[in-house]
Write a protein that binds this DNA or RNA. Structure first.
Lengths: 222, 222
DNA sequence: GCAAAATTAATAGCTAAACTATCATTGATT
DNA sequence: AATCAATGATAGTTTAGCTATTAATTTTGC
């Protein structure tokens, strides 16, 4: 277990009814849900099917999560939390410019070496395919007030501060960050499913090249 | 009825079982669904509730649309189709640069004067809150093959070509367009529900200013 | 090691969404 | 006037989403 895995994400305990990391069944639910969300997609995912995969009952799953939206939110928050942790650990030294470049490498997931395990690759796919559904609900406002999006806001805030340390007068740091973060996920979705909407390339990671250029052209000529 | 309203969008007839514009009930279903999607959101929207609003039965609604996903797709395509039409009509003259600037004005919806009617404002809100759900499904690939996303691809292609006429060597025209299109919708969502993730402003339309600058900084320094 | 407490399994059941089917009625067409 | 398409009215099926109850099992405190 490396440093990143030790990182505790405080929001997670609020989202779940009972901390799934604290019991054997809870851990199986998380593992199973990663596999099943990836396989079925959010719409066709049900607690009944999850219970079968995990070898338990529907009622027992409900003791950990009140509904599948919350379970997805838990997984997505886990992803953001790990990202935040990596950012904190890996961007401690260097010039503002170097720290920003390193940040983009982490955010844009360029080196696929990090995605070693099957689970991490699955989680990445879940985030690409389902993450926006975590926001786009009638419950956004109340969920926001409860603090369910705090981890994501922390990531955005952290990178926005890095941008401001590079360009103190930047008026649009938050917009830049979310444009890059959400945009890059979307481009990966397009590359796989709607290739005419993007520009993928065999030779390079076009998504990475593009967003690095987009950011620094903006900052260096604002 | 102005020019834009006369525009026929060919994809729409494939999405619906029966063309809703051809009958009185069909038109009421479209009107009602715009109001109801806006009010309830995609998740809580049902054909039963729609039937009540429209003054018909669930079974009759099913004679026009096979499911609510298709109905949403129809509405979103209508939105994209109108946008494409406006682009074609309003960017016929001027230098490449001027045409691009006009295009951004249309895409980013800067002049809220276009959003005169209640229905158009509702449709805009539906697109902001629900449009990504049209893509993010397990059925993307088959829907894509059928051609359900053709209208959107046309809009993206049109703007990408404008970009290429301005900068013939631009390698990332499609990525630029989708980043701006989807990004701007998302920023408007954030401005309303998660304001710490964006940079809204009382004085200016920050979304418009930001994306114009983002585009031309990229193109003029690539 | 044992009693109490907490977890889980097993089962049942309820409400509503997402459809499908049937047939009578209306209204437009030739 | 007869016909055909669209709609209304009604009913019914399956499954998702969620709650409740009790018995079995495991964990925990002592």
């Amino acid at each position: 277990m490396n440093l990143v895995d030790r990182f505790q994400i405080p929001v997670l305990e609020q989202i779940a009814i009972r901390n799934p990391q604290s019991t054997n069944l809870g851990k199986r639910i998380i593992e199973g849900s990663i596999a099943l969300f990836d396989e079925l997609g959010f719409e066709h995912f049900t607690f009944k099917k999850l219970a079968q995969v995990v070898g338990t009952t529907e009622a027992s799953v409900y003791r950990y999560f009140s509904c599948k939206q919350k379970l997805l939110l838990y997984l997505v928050n886990w992803y953001w939390g790990r990202l935040e942790c990596r950012l904190l650990l890996e961007t401690q030294s260097g010039s503002p410019r170097e720290r920003l470049e390193k940040t983009l490498q982490i955010l844009l997931n360029s080196n696929s070496a990090d995605l070693a395990s099957t689970n991490e690759r699955r989680l990445q796919r879940i985030v690409i395919h389902e993450a926006p559904k975590v926001f786009l609900t009638k419950a956004v406002d109340s969920d926001h007030q409860i603090g369910y999006y705090q981890t994501y806001a922390d990531v955005v805030g952290f990178v926005a501060n890095l941008i401001k340390s590079y360009k103190p007068n930047c008026k649009y740091a938050q917009m830049l960050v979310t444009t890059i973060l959400e945009g890059s996920l979307q481009q990966r979705f397009f590359a796989q499913h709607l290739p005419e909407l993007t520009n993928s390339s065999e030779q390079e990671d076009a998504v990475h090249v593009f967003y690095v250029q987009l950011l620094f052209n903006f900052l260096d000529h604002e």
